[in-house]
Simulated assay, not measured.
Amino acid sequence: MSGTHTVLYDPHGLIEAELPLDRAPYEALVTAVLAWKDPHLEPRDYEQIALQLTGHARAVAAHVKRHAAALPKNDSRGALAEVVLREATGRLSAPLKGTAHCAQNRARLVRALYTRLDRLTEAIPAAP
């Protein structure tokens, strides 16, 4: 068997940009996590859920960034996206913990990023 492999070099994330987000399962996960009252899970289970949400938050943030960069400089949606992205960067840099609170914070972040992405992809209403 050959020991060769192909290394993908995509410094601008162009391949990922073409891939659609698998939104429905993550929205269902966000809804479930935010509905928790006292789930009594093991710390490693909370960590795994938070890890899944972290990875998806990074993917959504990349989409937000690409959409915001494509807007005209005077479009306020781009400025709002930058605020959300700065907050996301700060929240994603926090270490994961094996707690419901950590997983719920990541779920809130995914929800906020999708809200911003939806705003960026909405058609701009025509001026009267």
Rank of each mutant, 00 (worst) to 15 (best):
M1P: 15
S2C: 12
G3Q: 08
G3S: 03
T4C: 01
T4K: 02
T6Y: 07
V7D: 08
L8T: 09
P11K: 05
H12D: 10
L14K: 10
I15T: 00
A17E: 10
L21H: 07
D22K: 13
D22R: 13
A24Q: 07
P25T: 14
Y26G: 00
Y26W: 01
A28R: 05
A28H: 04
A28C: 04
A32P: 11
A35H: 14
A35G: 15
K37G: 15
K37N: 13
D38K: 07
D38H: 12
P39Q: 01
L41G: 09
L41Q: 04
E42W: 07
D45N: 00
D45T: 05
E47G: 10
E47A: 15
E47Q: 13
E47K: 11
Q48E: 01
Q48A: 10
Q48T: 13
A50W: 00
L51E: 04
L51I: 06
Q52F: 04
Q52T: 07
T54H: 00
H56G: 02
H56L: 02
H56V: 02
H56E: 01
A57R: 00
A59S: 13
H63I: 05
V64Y: 04
K65V: 09
R66I: 14
A68E: 01
A70N: 02
L71Q: 11
P72F: 06
N74E: 06
D75H: 04
S76K: 10
S76V: 15
G78F: 03
A81F: 14
A81W: 07
V83E: 00
L85W: 12
R86T: 12
R86F: 08
T89Y: 02
G90A: 14
R91L: 10
L92Q: 08
A94Y: 01
K97G: 09
G98R: 02
G98D: 04
G98Q: 03
H101Q: 09
C102F: 07
A103G: 15
R106D: 01
R106I: 04
R106V: 06
A107I: 01
R108L: 08
L109W: 02
L109Q: 03
L109T: 05
V110E: 00
R111P: 09
L113Y: 02
Y114F: 15
Y114E: 03
R116H: 02
L117V: 15
D118H: 01
R119W: 06
L120G: 09
L120Y: 02
E122V: 00
A123H: 14
A123P: 13
A126H: 05
A126G: 08
A127G: 12
P128K: 01
